[in-house]
Design a binder for these strands. Structure first.
Lengths: 208, 208, 208, 208
DNA sequence: GATGAATGAGTCTTCATTCAT
DNA sequence: GATGAATGAAGACTCATTCAT
């Protein structure tokens, strides 16, 4: 039996698709379970059963439970940031503070609609993971892009690089904490009530 | 068989003491292990062995692993706050901002010396736990005291109660994040470098 | 409820017996399975099922599969040697060569009747295990006894200690190989045909 | 479609060559891994990865893991013996005992330089494997050659065939045990100290 | 109150083997 | 012949919890 070049291509892409399907199923099943039952209470067994693949198949694509967790969080986190940055670019805002506020607002609104993702990210997003992202060229592009983007905007302003980085860090941490607390726990108030306070604070932080 | 009031008292206090010894041993063993090996890698077996009691004894004093975790964190957290507040009171500071800064500085310095405790608290201190504290009369006292203390100080300032509570919440959350990140991970800078930025920010937050 | 001293003693010995029963069941089940199915094809699951205990109970008494293997082999090997030595002592033989031959003959006959044990021992008895025996006072007694026994007999003869130890080692190794090969594999001849050749060789070895 | 004799030959040799490359790679990878990591800890996956072939290819040339183990050991063992015999022939020794000693000494020195091979052979060389060799014409040649060689040498001596075979067997077994124990474990002494004792013993064994 | 032997469901992980391409 | 994704049974080991003493 022999195949034309076109047929062969179809075969390969089919094979690739099949591979992708199983891996994608695992990603989706794991995400669903992690956000529903929690990471701790989700076993590899649960994941493969939901994904409809054999247990061995899991270990074909992931080293262990923590590998898939990290990859999911990285994927989701960079996806949100990417969306936020793109949406902001479209707005073509000129003021530096406006840009930061717009990005943060976009992310807040996104997480408000994806409470489960917020829970997952909050408890597991760390600087260690961020370093992994930098080691991974695919994710790196976005991360690096953001870095450059902020630096560019910053340079137009007159602020020391270190000082700015620390402030940015504090803004991110504060935003994360407020999101988690107000969206998930409604504490000390819901997100709609917290937002003005948060934005006011961020503006203060950014004002020299 | 009957006892005099004095005998009864002796019995109870004896029982309480005996109970206290085993319970205290369990608390201390668990704290040592949680901060050393981490919560996940500490088993009940490890705890009872270190405490020198039988396995069944654990279940005499605690419902399960999570029960003891919560109680330890609550104990430690309120103990730190208590110390911080007392130290601040002794200073007899008059300025509202100075008081807040002093309390926070005290806590930061304490956690800098107790990195293991910082790790434990950061990953497990939540508002859910705070609600538990309110249900526990002993801890409640401290929490309530702190609340009143801050409110008193605040009332001297002209700020809306709600607004102030939200700001306070943000200050606490931000401080927690900065502590963890700079003390444990040295990211984005060590605590000595972060402190001025943090205090500057807190002052901005408190400034009307 | 209270117990007399006698009752308490009964309770303790009962508990001890129960413990012994489970452990003994595990030993016996494992021995039976190792000699029947082989070590490689016997799982912990097989052992606990045959022993009629829970899986966790296995790990109460043994670290892992290799722990129980070693302990069984050590137990059995020292038991055979003990029997052989005792039987030889009863004979009150005076000649040094006769004693060695008698001990070896006893062991050969014992292993001929316990082919399964022979298989197990042959493939797993090593000097590493011997060192373990020395670390274990219980087994040590027998091992040390044998050592002293041979040394005593030897001293009556005029031979250098090292030379003798090496020769003894070779006798033991040769005997082991011949036993395994002739009893289990009937190669190059059965044990009855091999024995005269072996004994002749041993006598040559012992003759100065 | 038909081929000339020459074409057919080319096809076969080509197929054989292709087959040989993959098969040889598998042999070499497996040998390297078995001697390095040990048989138990080497998986088919390890072998094919090291050999640079697909997993399925392994099953094209070998039935299973034990098949390749046996074939490797057989190959290596007969190769050593072949070398030893050839080296001895070149010496043109006349004395029967000298020949045996020379062969054994050659093998000992070879194994001393190839400790990993010694380990592999010792734990897995059995008479069962020897029977396989007889079924395999390729290996048979060498084995049969050796047999004839010894018988020839022996016939010049006056000894019963059976007796001699048994003695030879014992010499081989003893040599194997001493090699393994003294070269690998240095027990009860290193090979340089054991050699004189071993040779003395072999000479005794061969002396009628 | 205190003990600690016993439990067994639950979890991760491996790996020889198959088979559609 | 060659591939390598997929399989899933099999295995080792853990540990919170119970309960008879």
């Amino acid at each position: 039996m022999s195949f034309t070049a076109k047929e062969k291509l179809t075969q390969i892409s089919k094979r690739t698709d099949n591979k992708s399907i199983k891996e994608k199923n695992l990603y989706e099943a794991a995400y669903e379970l992690f956000t529903t039952k929690g990471i701790y209470d989700t076993s590899i067994d649960d994941i493969v059963k939901k994904a409809g693949v054999a247990k061995g198949t899991f270990y074909l694509y992931f080293m262990n439970k923590y590998d898939i967790i990290d990859r999911i969080i990285l994927k989701k986190a960079s996806s949100i940031i990417e969306k936020a940055v793109k949406a902001t670019e479209e707005k073509a805002l000129s003021d530096y503070t406006d840009i930061v506020i717009y990005v943060i607002d976009y992310i807040i609104e996104y997480l408000r609609e994806n409470k489960k993702l917020l829970k997952l990210i909050h408890k597991n997003l760390s600087w260690g993971l961020y370093r992994k992202a930098l080691a991974n060229p695919e994710e790196y592009k976005i991360m690096e892009y953001i870095r450059k983007y902020f630096i560019k905007v910053i340079n137009e302003n007159n602020m020391k690089a270190e000082e700015l980085e620390n402030n940015l860090f504090m803004i991110i941490e504060l935003t994360g904490s407020v999101c988690y607390s107000s969206i998930i726990l409604q504490e000390p108030a819901n997100i709609d009530e917290m937002k003005p306070a948060l934005f006011k604070m961020i503006k203060k932080m950014l004002a020299n």
